[in-house]
């Protein structure tokens, strides 16, 4: 964690001091997390890919003056979230899919039968995620994939911290219910 923080700060420092090419490294470092986050929000691989790419191209315009509070990953996750919102607003559509194109990763030592169970659970999870109200889904994925503190999520969404916490709990409870087959609507 300390190393990651060090590396991120140095990357940002270099980015702000005439080295925009370090953004390639930043992309390689966080692409999976950011694409997963965008997919979870938009449920559409092509749209998610566009959002992540746009975030990095937009960042280049900030070369020399990139500043943020909190972690670099959190900052990027916020940018992706804003991009996803813009897309949804522009297309006036609701996220539908979940993570149908996602590549679930099972533990390497998982036995075939156990892998099949996990795959089935992941399939259910994709569906369940797509059923969550967007505000709850946003808090959930920022927390899980962006690893952002609730305080930061709340600031980003312009809501009290307790509201962000509440949305997260609702989202988790709803997912638990749906995964247990209690809610199928």
């Amino acid at each position: 964690m300390v190393f990651q923080m060090l590396e991120d700060r140095i990357l940002v420092w270099r980015f702000n001091h005439g080295r925009p090419e370090v953004l390639h490294h930043v992309y390689d470092k966080y692409r999976t997390d950011l694409l997963t986050l965008a997919m979870a929000l938009l449920g559409d691989l092509a749209a998610a890919e566009d959002v992540v790419q746009d975030v990095f191209l937009s960042l280049l315009r900030l070369s020399g003056r990139l500043k943020f509070t909190g972690s670099l990953k959190g900052y990027l996750a916020t940018c992706v979230t804003n991009g996803a919102r813009n897309i949804l607003r522009a297309h006036r559509r609701h996220p539908t899919g979940g993570l149908d194109d996602a590549d679930p990763m099972a533990a390497p030592d998982t036995r075939p039968d156990a892998a099949a169970i996990i795959e089935e659970q992941l399939h259910q999870l994709r569906w369940a995620l797509s059923q969550l109200p967007y505000e709850q889904r946003e808090v959930l994925v920022l927390r899980v994939y962006g690893q952002m503190p609730f305080k930061e999520i709340a600031r980003q969404q312009g809501i009290p911290t307790n509201t962000a916490l509440g949305r997260y709990r609702y989202a988790i409870d709803r997912l638990r219910s749906m995964l247990d087959g209690e809610v199928r609507t």
């Binding site: 997919m39 998610a48 890919e49 999870l125």
Partner: peptide, 9 residues
């Protein structure tokens, strides 16, 4: 379970 759900570019 969510952590296992990853989109690989």
């Amino acid at each position: 379970l969510m952590q296992k759900l990853r989109a690989t570019p």
